[in-house]
Design a protein around this nucleic acid. Structure first.
Length: 591
RNA sequence: GCCAAUGUGGCUCAGGGGUAGAGCAAUUCACUCGUAAUGAAUAGGUCGUGGGUUCGAUUCCCACCAUUGGCUCCA
């Protein structure tokens, strides 16, 4: 039996399922060419090259054929061929992608195949012994995918699927997926009126509605306050600049495609401006404003910084991938001997903030490194500079005991990064927070400090975010809390529900009193029954519902109903305000 | 940008070559109500936009725009 808790066995099981998928496709459409078909985190996929496109109906046909193959209980047989035999074998089958794969294998590689009846695939394995061992599977979607992940190469058709050792587990997984989709911020955020988009404003340019704006305002004020308490200096720098600035920073060479440019970038005779895609070169001007001494360092510059990036049209996603966004930006300018301490400070700050909003536990850490051979000439600087920066970061991360994965070729063009990653409800991962070491840009901008011995030195720079991008963070918060944000960042913390019109005046008195204490409170003053008001407050994900009727008016109280604890009984306005204050102070979370 | 799917009143969706329906929401009126939907009535859509085919298009075709899931790229 397959032990599905064991990653190797799970992958093996699903990998074999992908072979069954390929066999089914080859039986149905023999002209289809095979590319690759690995197991992935929650299932598997197989990439095909076929003239006609696969339709949703085709998936059903393929599933039916797969069921047959499983029923036939075909044994999988492994065999090896020499390189020339292997190429010859695949060429005869017309599998040009497989030939390319074999050609790219190292000379000393063992070239193995797995044969199941009328189907043979190039594969390192391992595999199940027989197709009959597959008990439950489902094809989930069709997508385009470039051959070898290269956008210059042909786009193939990828079929995604998943498989499990029994039907119950499959159903459970599919149901979990459905449940997760209900938390999709892109749906919830629109329904609950956190944000919206308008066709004629443009892709990736969401409008934050009052609720979204309020939560983000709350977060921004908090971030700015916490950062200033920790010795950061808030700046406000321009949102655009002449191309001259980006030439110095390197953005013009490395990032032009991602920038919104005003004017003709090729026309040197005329002025050309661009919206900023990053804050770095602007904030450096703060440092450069006068001569700096070693005593000034570290200088921790922060900014609630709006950025513009001309993402390609297919890449936008709700509030997670947008073209205009605001990040909790920071550039720490420091002496080399301060690198470790300041990096640690950045990481602690990010962890504190992610912890306060409740996202930290679901984060993973990625050490993003450069690829010295990157064909697109993505990186600046010398191999020596990169080695210094990367080994410094490695030492720091290891000293701090950070558990991280390596992100090869994921570095910024100016240095390595520690990326704090988060997954959305579909399992897609994006960067929430990033902390980067930069030993290049200071020199480009002529940033120096006068050291103890009177000599001029070049500082190091840490680029970092603390809470990351506010839009993206809001998206993840909506997904994490299924639309019901923790009290301290909830746009509406309490709703007062008068029993009848006679209690509305008192309701507004209470609202005023609570607002004086900094609480965000609304009144449902419609002439509706209390049951309806409660229902709708619940649908609006309101945490505290304060009911006011004759009894409460008389006693000067409110009847408190909590979304999480139901009826809390009558209490004074002061008591409920104290209780809420306490929750706000403690960043209390209900999940 | 690439591959695919989708686009019908505020929302969820039905329909289909002869200019459109349901539920919820909205509005008005009545009810003034004690912890998850009071009732009745009314209004609301050139069926994403622009072309084409047709006697006639929301329905068929093309282009564009937007949304969704992938790929590539990235916070």
């Amino acid at each position: 039996m397959v032990d599905f808790n064991d990653e190797q066995q799970r992958k093996c099981y699903r990998h074999t399922t992908s072979h069954v998928l390929a066999q089914a496709v080859k039986r149905l459409w023999p002209d289809t060419k095979l590319a690759i078909g690995p197991a992935i985190e929650d299932g598997f996929y197989y990439d095909f090259d076929r003239e006609e496109t696969f339709t949703a109906d085709d998936l059903k046909t393929i599933e039916a054929e797969m069921k047959k193959i499983v029923k036939e209980n075909i044994p999988l047989e492994r065999f090896e061929l020499s390189r020339t035999e292997a190429i010859d074998f695949m060429e005869k089958l017309g599998e040009s992608y497989k030939v390319e794969l074999i050609n790219d294998l190292p000379m000393d590689a063992v070239i193995s195949f797995y044969k199941q009846g009328d189907f043979t695939d190039l594969c390192a394995g391992p595999h199940l012994d027989s197709t009959g061992e597959i008990k439950a599977f489902k094809l989930t979607s069709i997508a385009g995918a470039y051959w070898r992940g290269d956008s210059n190469k042909k786009m193939l058709q990828r079929i995604y699927g998943t498989s499990f050792p029994n039907k119950d587990m499959l159903h459970e997984y599919l149901e979990k997926l459905e449940e997760a989709k209900k938390r999709d911020h892109n749906k919830l955020g629109r329904e609950l009126e956190y944000f919206t988009t308008v066709d004629y404003i443009g892709q990736g340019l969401p409008i934050l509605l009052p609720k979204g704006a309020r939560t983000i305002q709350r977060l921004q004020r908090w971030v700015e306050d916490v950062e200033q308490e920790r010795g950061c200096l808030l700046t406000k720098t321009p949102l655009m600049a002449k191309r001259d600035l980006y030439r110095i920073s390197g953005h013009w060479d490395h990032y032009l495609d991602g920038m919104f440019v005003m004017g003709d970038p090729q026309d040197e005779a005329k002025e050309c401006y661009a919206l900023r895609p990053m804050t770095c070169p602007f904030q450096y001007q703060v440092y450069l404003n006068r001569q700096r001494s070693y005593r000034d360092l570290p200088m921790r510059l922060t900014e609630t910084s709006t950025l513009f990036r001309n993402e390609e049209s297919g890449e936008m996603h709700g509030l997670i991938r947008v073209r205009q966004f605001t990040i909790s930006e920071g550039h720490y300018i420091l002496r080399p001997d301060q690198l470790e301490e300041e990096f640690k400070e950045c990481l602690e700050l990010a962890k504190f903030m992610l912890g306060a909003v409740g996202l930290l536990d679901d984060c993973t850490f990625r050490f993003s490194q450069w690829d010295p051979e990157n064909p697109k000439n993505k990186y600046e600087g010398t191999a020596e500079q990169w080695d210094v920066a990367q080994s410094a970061m490695k030492t720091i991360l290891d000293d701090l005991g950070v558990e991280y994965s390596i992100g090869f070729d994921e570095a910024a063009f100016y240095g390595p990064k520690l990326d704090i990653q988060y997954k959305n409800v579909y399992g897609k991962e994006d960067t929430l927070v990033t902390i980067q070491i930069d030993m290049l840009l200071a020199q480009k901008f002529g940033m120096e400090y006068v050291d103890t011995d009177g000599s001029k030195k070049s500082p190091y720079i840490i680029h970092r975010t603390s809470l990351g991008c506010y839009e993206r963070t809001l998206a993840y918060l909506l997904e994490k809390y299924a639309g019901c944000l923790p009290l301290w960042i909830a746009p509406e913390q309490a709703r007062i529900l008068p029993i009848s019109d006679a209690h509305v005046d008192r309701a507004y008195e209470i609202k005023k009193a609570m607002e004086k204490r900094g609480l965000r409170v609304e009144v449902d003053d419609r002439s509706e029954k209390i049951g309806k008001k409660i229902r709708e407050a619940n649908l609006d994900k309101i945490i505290y519902m304060l009911v006011v009727g004759d009894k409460e008016v008389e006693e000067g109280t409110v009847a408190v109903r909590s979304r999480f604890d139901a009826d809390l009984g009558s209490m004074s306005v002061e008591s409920i305000s104290d209780l809420m204050d306490e929750e706000v102070k403690n960043y209390t979370k209900h999940v």
